[in-house]
Design a protein around this nucleic acid. Structure first.
Length: 799
RNA sequence: GCCGAAGUGGUGGAAUGGCAUACACGUCGGUCUCAAAAACCGAUGAGCGUAAGCUCGUAAGGGUUCAACUCCCUUCUUCGGCACCA
């Protein structure tokens, strides 16, 4: 009754494995296609998200293969990380053993899905043959000053008991466990990603085939803002107070300045002033507020006058100096100029404290107002007023002119501020790459020599989940000799953030066994960059930014000759059930494995592609999966009723389908490609197919349903792999319809349809229209004002 | 607040200036069957009408056009990112 998917799928898995069907070996001059999906964390079982991600990738890989490309389609495991430690504690085993078991299980599940991976290239980041090169890269960065240690206030997750990079803090919480992140002062290792900030921003322009969403997220994250640092002077002793602004066009309206409570100057300027005691009290009060409270925008801004004045360098006006909690020491210079008339925040603050205001930008076309009349700040564009020699310019012109003028006179400096911070990579964790650094009491921080790599992760470490770097408790690991003076020394006991591992794995895939350097330059030259990368949107900043950084670093080392690792990027949407993300805690998980045993991998693959376009969220629908399975059976049964020769009508539909499917596969519109194959199938049921038409259909289905198609291919008498049989070409002659249907509109509304020969003349068509009974009542007694003909499609008659 | 994406039947979705709702799910009806399942065939945006057909309809309002889901303007809603960022 149903086709025997169980046996068929098993059969072809064996064949593919035996014949090493997906082995990719570089052939110079042959056009290559490197297709990569983000490698998984080996949790043991695959989930629907994996199924979706890897199915999208696999269909593209198989399609490209059929089109004649030499396709590299590797798979591996992002195997270091905290869950292994937690699982090991829970299951009373070791992270190493647990992870390897998971990798094996997960590999089997991936194989069950029939993905066309070159398994001989499999890598796991927890193998010392891999992480050795993490250490090598780290040392290269260290020698260039790109890896450095500094004491700073860092993000600390109290539940994971480790530090986090800025990128790993999502809405103030840990990206992994969502616990609120705390601040802690620690000495940690950083990578100087900021060295590449210009390039990281600039080269986004090069990524034409990345989703706009990702580009905008990265742009926001890097956060470039241009402006001017203005040098206000203290009235009493000419001490300079630098103030950063992006709105230098409003400088003539600056009526006071505000310092952050932590600003070093505050204590000096209040000394001996009557306000001293009050201000100190205020600072103390602010310092007791948590960062979260202080940074929530709905809390009322509080501030206090210091008793001191500063001089505005553009007009030598004396302005009062205030201290307020809304000015942050971490951004800019920790001091701002305040323009109440053109900044809403300043406006509210000035109203509250009765501070002076002056309008300097006049909205075009509106009546000039005086400060007393305005009810809110005007933040838009307009014409400069009250701005000395700049009056009459548009504020956009003034922005440039004033900046240049100030820069030239030395009363300000054109400056750029960035949001991006260096990447903190130290983790107080066991299951990661040891940082290859030795601390010597005599020589200080000493890098491990290249020939001593890898610094192996000890197999036994007493990690308990109670915090503190577990490696610190392994004496044989910690105690070592200084590479320089040979005296006793200690090893660094933190490990690297796992995002380090995944920042270059796509390069390793090009030559996974290479043991002279992280990768073989020749192989990388052939395969890289990745032509198509596919993965989840959650990596829009994290992994994708870090990988871009590493690529630029390798370019500087002259190990590669390209600037960006991923030419095209597709971010697939999440799989939902009942409108929510599938998760263990919500208990709404659908296990791919049980779906495979019920309907087969092919039906599952077909369903996840058909249910939604790849980028959008996919609502799980078991009825839909059943429908996909029914469709495959419907196709399967065609073989029982093949005709000698198919009707021309059907052959035309076939060629239209070939055209549509080829275009859609190319642009990842799998849902509509499948829809048109369903239409072809419906037409076959109507007309009856011959062997040729049927073979074409199963060929088009092959990238999506590889086992199913390969089996039918064999049943139809073909030997060998359907994937080596080439792709289909639509015959342009078959795409021309002889009889076409012209839609007739009257005043833009469809009133009739006429079937005509495709090469009918306009005159003849007009005659036919005039004779159309359906149109008589619409056209009778009405002069035709316009006759619009869209060739081969439509006529619109305006009466 | 700024930036980005989106809003279409009962549901997933299709159409990027030219027939709105392809394809599928669901529902209803039919064929086959003792019956059911499966399979096959058909109907299925709303309203009015016996019917032919007519009117309305793509978040709301306006505009451009012979013609707008599609382009422009305003507004609303949802999702995502950034944010007391000066």
């Amino acid at each position: 009754m149903y086709y025997n998917f169980k046996e068929i799928e098993k059969k072809w898995h064996r064949v593919w494995e035996k014949e090493k069907s997906f082995r990719a070996k570089a052939i110079p001059k042959k056009k290559k296609y490197y297709l990569l999906e983000m490698f998984p964390y080996p949790s043991g079982k695959i989930h629907m998200g994996h199924v979706r991600n890897y199915t999208i990738g696999d269909v593209s890989a198989r399609f490209k293969t059929m089109q004649g490309y030499l396709v590299l389609h590797p798979m591996g495991f992002d195997a270091f990380g905290q869950p292994a430690e937690n699982a090991a504690i829970k299951n009373k085993t070791k992270p190493d053993i647990w992870t390897r078991k998971c990798i094996k299980e997960m590999g089997n599940e991936l194989k069950k899905m029939g993905f066309s991976y070159d398994w001989e290239r499999e890598i796991s980041t927890c193998d010392s043959s891999y992480y050795k090169w993490n250490q090598w890269i780290f040392l290269k960065m260290f020698k260039r000053g790109l890896a450095y240690k500094k004491a700073s206030s860092v993000n600390w997750c109290p539940s994971c008991l480790t530090t986090l990079a800025d990128e790993e803090v999502i809405e103030g919480g840990c990206w992994r466990c969502h616990k609120k992140v705390e601040e802690k002062d620690l000495e940690q290792w950083y990578l100087k990603i900021t060295e590449y900030k210009e390039q990281l921003l600039e080269d986004l322009n090069q990524l034409k085939d990345w989703p706009e969403r990702v580009l905008s997220m990265q742009t926001n994250w890097i956060g470039k803002s241009r402006g001017v640092e203005i040098y206000f002077k203290l009235k009493d002793d000419n001490t300079i107070i630098p103030v950063f602004t992006t709105r230098v066009d409003t400088i003539f309206g600056a009526t006071y300045i505000v310092l952050a409570p932590e600003h070093t100057l505050v204590k000096e300027i209040i000394k001996g002033k009557p306000q001293e005691k009050e201000v100190l009290k205020f600072i103390d009060k602010v310092s007791k507020k948590s960062a979260v409270v202080r940074s929530s925008s709905d809390v009322k801004k509080e501030g206090i006058f210091t008793g001191s004045f500063a001089v505005n360098p553009v007009n030598n006006e004396e302005v009062p100096i205030w201290v307020a909690d809304y000015v942050l020491m971490e951004y800019g210079s920790g001091a701002i100029m305040s323009v109440p008339t053109h900044d809403q925040r300043d406006f509210l603050f000035a109203k509250e404290h009765g501070l002076p205001m002056r309008i300097v930008i006049q909205a075009q076309g509106s009546k000039f107002k005086v400060p007393a009349e305005i009810t809110e700040a005007y933040e838009g564009d307009g014409i400069q007023v009250n701005s000395a020699q700049f009056d009459g310019l548009t504020n956009q012109e003034a922005k440039v002119k004033i900046a240049e003028w100030m820069d030239g006179k030395g009363i300000g400096k054109i400056q750029t501020h960035w949001r991006l911070r260096d990447w903190l990579i130290s983790r107080q964790r066991y299951w990661g790459t040891p940082i290859p650094i030795i601390y010597c009491p005599k020589c200080g921080i000493v890098p491990v020599a290249y020939e001593d790599l890898p610094v192996e992760l000890p197999k036994d470490a007493p990690f308990t989940g109670e915090g503190g770097s577990p490696l610190g408790k392994v004496k044989e690991f910690v105690n070592t000799k200084c590479p320089e003076c040979k005296g006793p020394a200690r090893r660094e006991t933190d490990t690297m953030a796992t995002f380090f591992d995944s920042s270059w794995y796509f390069l390793r895939f090009c030559s996974p066994g290479f043991n002279e350097e992280p990768f073989d330059k020749k192989e990388v030259k052939y395969w890289m960059p990745v032509d198509q990368y596919i993965g989840g949107i959650e990596h829009a900043i994290l992994h994708l930014l870090y990988s871009r950084f590493f690529t630029k670093f390798f370019k500087d080392l002259e190990m590669i000759d390209f600037k960006e690792p991923f030419t095209r990027l597709l971010t697939q949407g999440m799989v939902l059930k009942d409108g929510e993300v599938m998760s263990k805690s919500k208990g709404n998980i659908v296990d791919p494995d049980s779906m495979i045993s019920q309907y087969g991998a092919d039906a599952l693959r077909l369903f996840v592609l058909f249910a939604a376009p790849p980028e959008t969220e996919l609502e799980w629908d078991s009825k839909g999966l059943e429908g996909a399975f029914k469709f495959l059976n419907r196709v399967w049964r065609i073989q029982e009723n093949l005709k000698e020769k198919a009707d021309t009508g059907l052959v035309r539909i076939l060629h239209k389908t070939i055209k549509k499917v080829s275009e859609d596969f190319q642009s990842f519109k799998f849902n509509t490609a499948i829809a048109s194959m369903m239409e072809l199938t419906n037409a076959i049921y109507q007309y009856g197919a011959d062997k040729q038409v049927f073979k074409s259909l199963i060929k088009m289905l092959a990238p999506i349903t590889p086992h199913f198609s390969q089996e039918l291919w064999q049943i139809l008498g073909e030997k060998g792999s359907i994937f080596k049989a080439g792709w289909l070409e639509a015959d342009p002659r078959m795409l021309i319809e002889e009889r076409i249907i012209i839609v007739i509109q009257v005043n833009g509304k469809v009133r009739s349809k006429i079937e005509v020969s495709q090469d009918i003349s306009e005159e003849k068509l007009k005659t036919l229209i005039m004779a159309d009974k359906k149109l008589i009542s619409w056209l009778k007694d009405k002069p035709i004002r316009n006759f619009i003909l869209v060739p081969k499609k439509l006529v619109n008659i305006v009466v």
